[in-house]
């Protein structure tokens, strides 16, 4: 199942998510995160997208995984944060 969301991060930038997920297992198959936010280092975003594959579309688990990847890859967001990213992804399946 493919889905798309557009989410204006409170006090932040515009986040757009293209999501492909398994309707049976409710897990991420493929994700592309786009928007006018800033993330340092930029290239880490590709790792984050890759590592989000197979993550369950459950708020708590998603937030935990995103937060752990942010610290693993030392990502610093401006205009975006882990909660907003979680929200943007979940908007695709609501």
């Amino acid at each position: 199942m493919q889905s798309h969301s557009v989410y204006k991060v409170p006090q932040g930038k515009l986040l757009k998510i293209n999501l492909e997920y398994d309707e049976t297992t409710h897990r991420i198959l493929h994700i592309r995160i786009t928007g006018d936010f800033f993330a340092y280092p930029e290239e880490a975003m590709e790792h984050l997208e890759e590592q989000l594959k197979d993550t369950p579309l459950d708020r708590k688990k998603l937030l935990l995984q995103i937060s752990s990847l942010i610290s693993q890859y030392h990502i610093e967001f401006i205009g975006l944060n882990a909660e907003a990213l979680t929200q943007g992804i979940l908007l695709c399946v609501l």
């Binding site: 757009k16 995160i33 006018d36 936010f37 930029e42």
Partner: peptide, 9 residues
């Protein structure tokens, strides 16, 4: 366009 933006979108 910004690094994270989609050109076609």
């Amino acid at each position: 366009i910004g690094y994270f933006q989609s050109l076609v979108e």
